[in-house]
């Protein structure tokens, strides 16, 4: 039986399953215990598994991640939560200098299977500095896997796969999707492999690559463009940003000959820049137009009263794709 779950419920069920199946798994974070997490992703787990396995920590990101590394080095499987992605900075030293490098520095003698979960992104009317999309920071730090589910089904499968692997994984949860959609999610354990993109919708004219909360906007934009312009978009949900699925991208772009990348992080130095570069390096001859990026602007994520203008909306995606096609026919 597949019940319909939202993203929060799917994640909660997955964490519950991981804690049940392996007593080496433990959760660490701020307000994740008694309070069940500020988004309730860890609801009830404290009551079910006790405070040795679902641990409310002091307000200390470097401490949480640093201890997480130590716990993992010494045989446990910690899954830590950073309350909001924009509050991860105090832990960056731990993540960039150590988490991402310990396998290399010990030449495989030690591995650090630490999972860091964090809600991210704008569009939920959150206070200042709660809406960051800084995935590019971690994307450019070799030694980490960076995963972003766009829906409840993938979230369960990806988090389970992350937990079965031996690499550190940064697992980013789009806040805007937490409660905005429901989907059938199998009750049993399953995985969605890391490093594998998902062609969500087939199309013939343009490949659109996106992830997280942007997928919803891209799907709506695709419907509109199909109806009003007869343009057919193929939508690739990247799911794992690092290492990304070059095969699926190539397969798709070699069919459509056009690529657009949509992300909510700023344009300059974003993950889209890397994707665009790789596509043109490998497929220059296949392309009928320059690779296009539709992204947040090169500004700090603005206050919530205007955050919707910052995000690539359905309208802006439609507008920019139309402009792209117009400039080609001129």
């Amino acid at each position: 039986m597949h019940r319909e779950l939202n993203l929060v419920q799917a994640l909660n069920e997955t964490l519950d399953m991981l804690l049940t199946d392996d007593d080496k798994v433990l959760l660490l974070g701020q307000d994740i215990g008694k309070n069940g997490g500020v988004f309730r992703v860890t609801e009830n787990l404290y009551h079910k598994f006790g405070d040795e396995r679902v641990v409310d920590t002091p307000l200390s990101e470097a401490g949480i991640v640093g201890c997480g590394i130590g716990l993992a080095l010494n045989g446990l499987k910690p899954i830590v939560e950073i309350e909001f992605f924009g509050f991860i900075y105090p832990a960056l030293e731990q993540i960039l200098s150590h988490l991402a490098r310990l396998r290399m520095r010990t030449q495989g003698k030690y591995e650090v299977p630490l999972i860091i979960r964090a809600p991210y992104g704008a569009g939920v009317r959150a206070p200042e500095l709660h809406s960051e999309s800084i995935e590019a920071l971690l994307f450019q730090s070799p030694g980490l896997k960076v995963v972003i589910p766009s829906n409840p089904y993938d979230a369960k499968g990806l988090l389970t796969a992350a937990s079965e692997g031996s690499d550190p994984v940064i697992f980013l949860e789009p806040m805007r999707v937490y409660r905005s959609m429901r989907q059938p999610v199998p009750q049993h354990r399953y995985t969605v492999p890391l490093g594998k993109a998902n062609v969500m919708k087939e199309g013939k004219d343009i490949t659109v690559i996106a992830w997280g909360a942007m997928i919803g906007n891209v799907v709506k934009a695709a419907e509109q463009l199909e109806k009003t312009q007869g343009i057919s978009l193929e939508i690739v949900d990247l799911r794992t940003l690092y290492p990304f699925d070059i095969e699926t991208i190539q397969e798709s772009v070699s069919k459509t000959h056009r690529a657009v990348i949509v992300h909510e992080a700023p344009l300059t130095g974003g993950v889209g820049a890397e994707l665009a570069a790789v596509i043109q390096e490998r497929m220059f001859g296949d392309l009928k137009s320059p690779v296009k990026r539709i992204t947040g602007f090169d500004v700090p994520v603005p206050q919530f009263s205007i955050e919707d203008y910052y995000l690539p909306s359905q309208d802006r995606i439609v507008h920019e794709i139309e402009q792209m096609l117009v400039s080609l026919t001129r």
């Binding site: 602007f297 090169d298 500004v299 203008y309 910052y310």
Partner: peptide, 18 residues
């Protein structure tokens, strides 16, 4: 709110990209 306020005051002088 005027949404273009987000493009102001990022740097002393607005670079070409912004």
């Amino acid at each position: 709110p005027d949404p273009t306020i987000m493009f102001q005051n990022v740097l002393a002088n607005k670079p070409w990209n912004i």
